[in-house]
Design a protein around this nucleic acid. Sequence first.
DNA 1: CGGTATATTGACTCCACTCAACACCAGTGG
DNA 2: CCACTGGTGTTGAGTGGAGTCAATATACCG
Lengths: 264, 264
Amino acid sequence: MPPRRLQITTEPRITGVPFRERSRGQAVSLLSTAQSAALAAIGTIVQLPKGTIVYRAKSAADSVFNLVQGVVKTYDVLPDDRSIVSGFHFAGDMFGLAEHGHYVEWAEAIIPSVAFRIPLAALEPLLDRDGALAVRFLCKAADGLRQNRRHARILARNDALGRFAMLLRQLEQQGPSRGPDSVTYFPMSRGDAAQFIGLTLEAMSRASSTLERTRIIQFIDRHHFQVVDHARFEQLLAGAYQPAVVRAKPRALPEAALRKRRKT
Amino acid sequence: MPPRRLQITTEPRITGVPFRERSRGQAVSLLSTAQSAALAAIGTIVQLPKGTIVYRAKSAADSVFNLVQGVVKTYDVLPDDRSIVSGFHFAGDMFGLAEHGHYVEWAEAIIPSVAFRIPLAALEPLLDRDGALAVRFLCKAADGLRQNRRHARILARNDALGRFAMLLRQLEQQGPSRGPDSVTYFPMSRGDAAQFIGLTLEAMSRASSTLERTRIIQFIDRHHFQVVDHARFEQLLAGAYQPAVVRAKPRALPEAALRKRRKT
DNA sequence: CGGTATATTGACTCCACTCAACACCAGTGG
DNA sequence: CCACTGGTGTTGAGTGGAGTCAATATACCG
């Protein structure tokens, strides 16, 4: 697959993995030109300058959004004012999850973005009529579920290094597939990233520094990085590597542990 | 809403929150009798004794499952052999998420269960034809996304007590709504619960013991609990309560902090 | 009953959080 | 040009709490 430019489109575009597709797993456009046109007919383009709040949690939800350009984060604000980022959305993604007619989270453009706003009032009849289109939306929803699983896997780790590495891996895979040593775009601020992987800003910064110091990754600038040592990076992702030079001191194993070890 | 018995059905049954529904948020059955019958026609009932592996990660995915009775856990096995539970599924839920024709996770019945196995080969044409049915599935997928958000909120907390409390809250809300001081079913083992909330078994056990010792909750037996002190339980969920009698010592604030505090 | 799996409790270590200070940068205005 | 500011990141020191290993207790199932 030749690396090609991300085309700037003014049509709705939804990417994902079709159900039937048994091929290798790159996400492809799920919509036919007719379907895209049908969505364009009922939706409107909205420009989202950096920092735009697309919607607030609990506000009336009348539309879903299809991002055609940029990056949008969705996040929860907890009772204690901290907030956690539930996901980052890229071109081809949908966002605007609601419950009982109200959005369940906040959405904010973290870089200049463009989205299609699709009113539910018009979308629902369209989906009712066009089963094939509804199935495409279902595919995209399944995509979201898989994305959430990845996020949960990140949050379930308890080492800052591993969490950060998993985030970088995800960004690598989200972007257009390029060469093995290419530079990957890191669109979000450190704070956003930290809130996504469930760490404090400081802990994440330390993890980042450690990975740089040990020459596993390298940041070109604040928003561009590349993996330098793929082998150790993979070990890190697998959870079987501590780059800290301070090896856990090999304290003498007690008797019971030795017995158990002999068996295996 | 009168508390009523969970009916044992041999028909597919999918519960969730319809898109249009502006009413209060109890989950309702999403399928009309005709739709249920259509699904029954293409699916088969499978009995799942406790401990049954419904499918394995990476095995060929030819069906989705609609649970009509019991509880099924879905989980990932990590490279280092630990495993994390991605979700618990109850009657009315669907599971069987796949990618490229292969399941992405494991599924296991944790109590005796009954499910409908619905082959994708037959389901897809059905959804293509029946847009309304596809929309119901979309509703259910949205339900899954909301469920995942709740899970992520649990994992994002860093206090064991809070995580455990949030799990209990979720179980309370999942079950049939009853009186305020009623007993709630705790279907999973401690190990499963710990893997769901991202803690070790020991840490979770300690959290559970602490909540019992401080009379916030009470376990009738290993699989039934009730919340005793609702006020403190809510504070705990909100993240604004430390039941540990060891209050953080109010060490003298340094000069800078005092200055900042005066401003606010 | 006995035997195994599951659950609780204890002791100790280590890592992420907290508070704090500092570095860096862009924009603003003198 | 510098000084001031606020926002954003990095680094440092100290503490608490969850992980780890281990022993014990309880429940489950023949």
